[in-house]
Amino acid sequence: MPANLLATIVNIAVMVGFILTVVPVMVWVERRGSALMQDRPGPNRLGPFGLIQPLADALKFFFKEDVTPTAVDKPLYLLAPALAIMPALLTISVIPFGPALTIGDETYPLMIADAPAGVLLFLALASLGVYSLVLAGYASNNKFSLMGAIRASAQMISYELALTLAVLAVVIPVGSFHLQDVVDYQRAHVWNFIPQILGFVVFLIASFAETNRLPFDLPEAESELVAGFHTEYSAMRFASFFMGEYMSMTSLSALGVTLYFGGWSLPGVDLHGWLGAVVGLLVLVAKIAFCMAIFVWVRWSFPRFRYDQLMRLGWKVLLPVAIVNLILVAVLTLSGVLGAP
């Protein structure tokens, strides 16, 4: 087996293993975290601190009856849950998780897809995530689901613009779409969130809307739409929407920390070689864990936006702020304040 192929397989095993492990951990964090914030114990019967609870939840999903309503559009109905997981699994491939490793004479990058247009590839593949929601809502043949799907398509298109503009502003001083270059730039200068705090705030808000988390979970909005686009789903098909949400939260957090918080690097510490690879991965995971905690914290702190408020925030606040940030960063870069790439 050629060494390159082996390296790619190891990279895939690390990153996909990580993103799949996140789901049960996040189920536990979400349930215990919400309990903590609402001053109740939460699941605490299975194992210490209820740690085995996610296993029980998963088993329950497996043994529930998988109901397929008769009036659904069957091919699309079956396709939608599969599409929910795909974007997160694909996008994680452009995230670097350590310094390039030199074994013998060969240098192996610690990322699955060493793509020169990595940032664009991430955005492009992440933008496919909306299809699972839209198709699920359409195929369910249910008015609530259709409402959820219509909301999802409008919401995700609107916030994608602001998100993309915020990300592009990061790329300007770096001068490259490669995420490893973004990390190297931040190792040489400061973490991007200091000069680009405006863009970071836009990115943060837009990423809540992109992952359909409260306060922007309008496509499911259980108080008005029953469960929105996944009303008609049950058992493992429902669970795959659930997993898809956590996995896209993870991959978007990975992009966020790579763009704004130095990715796998630590300021003032020179990571290289095998130790650097291990420490780099741990640092990246720790940073992502912090972001995920913020996702949970925000979810249980804020009430849901109304649909018109959501649209107004997206188009009249976030988009102009993102454009101002883009121009500001371009001017600062050209005047040499942000340092040469």
């Binding site: 247009a117 492009a124 933008s127 496919l128 398509s153």
Partner: peptide, 16 residues
């Protein structure tokens, strides 16, 4: 990447 980002990611979603 632009093809996916613009056409499949945005324009066709608006079609739907």
């Amino acid at each position: 990447a632009l093809q996916i980002l613009i056409y499949t990611g945005a324009i066709l979603v608006l079609f739907l």
